[in-house]
Design a binder for these strands. Structure first.
Lengths: 270, 270
DNA sequence: GAGTGGTCTAGACCACTGT
DNA sequence: CAGTGGTCTAGACCACTCC
């Protein structure tokens, strides 16, 4: 539990930050508007510069403001939200049985990360590594058994900022039937992961996705070009085949200020 | 974009926070362990107290540490994660057709918020209000048409902390056939929202859930009893009936440090 | 060049934690 | 009680923005 002062008066930085937050929520300060300058804050609330700064830091941490260096911080403009729907999984499965020239329109990167490759730089790395305790338990294999580890990262070549990131694991034994799957040079694969699994006779029955959120570290913030106060959405996904075996595990991160995760749950008819 | 200093050297607070973060990630500092005292930090990194404090604030903001008042902050212990699975929706639908004594085991609060009522205090408020622009568009009704607004809040009576929260909207026209649905006194309803809709002849076909995350405000943090650096997961859910009409919209928040949202996507068989 | 906020130092008071 | 970190003041330097 967060330590809270038990003083009769609330801390000044909290009072200031809340006052300004309320002005933002009321719409008196709109996205893009500048906050009062630090000096004005200190005058209006009669506090020292450092307390005023602390209030600004609090607002930043709540994701309400951005910018500031050299000019007053501004009320944060919400970036365009990109929706990433679970319907992709079903569409990808349908596409697997199409001829290659149809499939070719979508590679693993697009279907797994939900972004287009246009004007982005894709880094792919393939490794064969021991599964380790955690993965082994999920896959029902031994910890020393090998898994194929595939890491994808998309960067904006201009800013260098990360736009998408994911890492996935497949037990090596499952894909020995098609050695081409072990070669990163074949990326992007026409049709995505489901088609790759299809080439070794695996049909998927469902995806199980666990969603959590956490604050990025300072280096993560820099990598993604994130404002302070923006969480990362984390998806841990298991792909289950028609025999109820987990055949792929993947992790992916998404910046919460520009990502909306959509999940559709169909209900059986009465 | 976060302002970054362009000085040749990185800011001390960042250097200190990163050094300690790396020690945590390496396992040299384990959950529950105490950080070095502020004085030790200032000695080791030869900085002023305020810079050391700023580093601690950064770690707090990243959700890595907690506590502190009167003693050194400790590496955060991850609370037990509660998984909230989309399978609930399917199970609830199956239960709707059961006799009442079977249904009675689950009320709206449990099924919609995923928690048990045992030892928790439930606050319910029902209102009939105009839909407004946003809801009207979703429901396909007029902005002045009325909707039933149901707000649920679960609190721990001991600490007073909020444990669950949700608000849901249903067009009034849909439920006029059963006036009992407008009465908050009937909570908890045996069988949840799906059964309530069943009493006015509505069968649900699917749920569409949009997940985002954002940082809580300072008052939200206090309400939920959240540590600094813990995001809130926000679910915006639409219930769609068999005629493809949106019949219920709901919003719910969950603390990200103790909640895992699970979504199962079934794939059609070839 | 004037004004801005980010970072830093030095020193103080207070509430809280332990013994 | 001594030690701790949270909050606060006062004052300084710097990089950045805008004119």
């Amino acid at each position: 539990m967060e330590p809270q002062p038990t003083t009769v008066e609330r801390p000044k930085q909290l009072q200031i930050a809340d006052d300004i937050r309320i002005r933002i929520e009321r719409g008196e300060l709109r996205p893009g508007d500048s906050l009062p300058t630090l000096q004005e804050i200190c005058r209006q609330w009669s506090c020292s510069m450092n307390s005023g700064r602390a209030a600004i830091t609090l607002l930043r941490e709540q994701g309400l403001i951005s910018g500031g260096r050299g000019k007053a911080p501004t009320v944060r403009m919400t970036p365009r939200m990109v929706t990433r729907s679970s319907e992709r999984h079903r569409e990808e499965k349908l596409r697997v049985l199409l001829p290659e020239d149809e499939r070719r329109k979508l590679g693993v990167a697009e279907t797994d990360m939900g972004t287009s490759l246009d004007e982005l730089r894709l880094s792919v790395s393939y490794d064969v590594v021991p599964a380790g305790e955690e993965l082994a338990e999920q896959f029902g294999i031994g910890p020393a058994d090998e898994v194929l580890r595939r890491a994808y990262e998309l960067n904006d070549p201009e800013s260098g900022r990360r736009e998408a990131w994911s890492v996935s694991f497949i037990p090596r034994d499952l894909i020995v039937g098609n050695p081409a799957l072990l070669d990163a040079e074949n990326e992007p694969w026409p049709g995505g992961t489901q088609h790759q699994l299809h080439t070794v006779g695996i049909e998927l029955a469902r995806f199980i996705e666990d969603v959590t959120a956490q604050m990025p570290t300072t280096v993560d913030r820099q990598r993604w070009g994130l404002d302070r106060g923006v969480p990362l959405l984390r998806i841990r996904r298991a792909a289950v085949d028609v025999h109820d075996h987990v055949v792929e595990l993947s992790n992916a991160d998404f910046p919460a200020d520009r990502t909306r995760l959509q999940f559709v749950t169909d209900l059986p008819r009465w």
